[in-house]
């Protein structure tokens, strides 16, 4: 089908972490052709193609226009597929194979999760829905 381009504005400079990513300059506009739920979006500009972090982009139409889901305080059961050690004080440290509840699926790919009494951010790419068989 046709590729729908959506234009976003870069909110801060970003230096790419691999050859398949792009450097970003604050204020420039980028066209996005694919949005991965893990927070990496694919940018296709005139001469540049590569992955960029959604967390460094805002919609051109203004912050009112959002595709983000509302938080679900009841929580949705997920299992961690990889351990992660918190680097910021609003993140959680977990081991592989822990069951947690997802409260808010943020487009930036860092979801708000709950584990017992604790709430914090965790990379969505290290989570899979509880009860689903992991792809081989």
């Amino acid at each position: 089908g046709p590729i729908i381009l959506q234009t976003y504005r870069v909110i801060a400079d970003y230096n790419k972490g691999s050859k398949y990513q792009l450097n970003l300059k604050e204020g420039e506009q980028v066209d996005i052709v694919e949005k991965s739920t893990n927070g990496w979006w694919f940018c296709q500009c005139e001469s540049r193609r590569g992955w960029v972090p959604a967390s460094y982009l805002e919609p051109l139409e203004g912050p009112d226009e959002t595709e983000e889901q509302e938080p679900n305080y009841a929580g949705e059961l997920f299992v961690t597929t990889k351990a992660y050690t918190a680097e910021q004080d609003d993140e959680l440290t977990l081991q592989e194979g822990e069951t947690i509840e997802v409260i808010h699926k943020l487009l930036e790919g860092w979801w708000v999760i709950r584990k017992g009494e604790q709430t914090g951010h965790y990379p969505s790419m290290f989570l899979r829905k509880s009860g689903e068989i992991r792809a081989a």
């Binding site: 801060a12 972490g17 893990n38 992660y84």
Partner: peptide
């Protein structure tokens, strides 16, 4: 490859933006 997103978590939003959201 170019077709697959990076396998490491993306960066958190810039600190100024995180503060603004709270």
């Amino acid at each position: 490859s170019m077709k697959e997103p990076p396998s490491n978590p993306p960066p958190r939003p810039p600190a100024e933006l995180r503060r603004k959201r709270q």
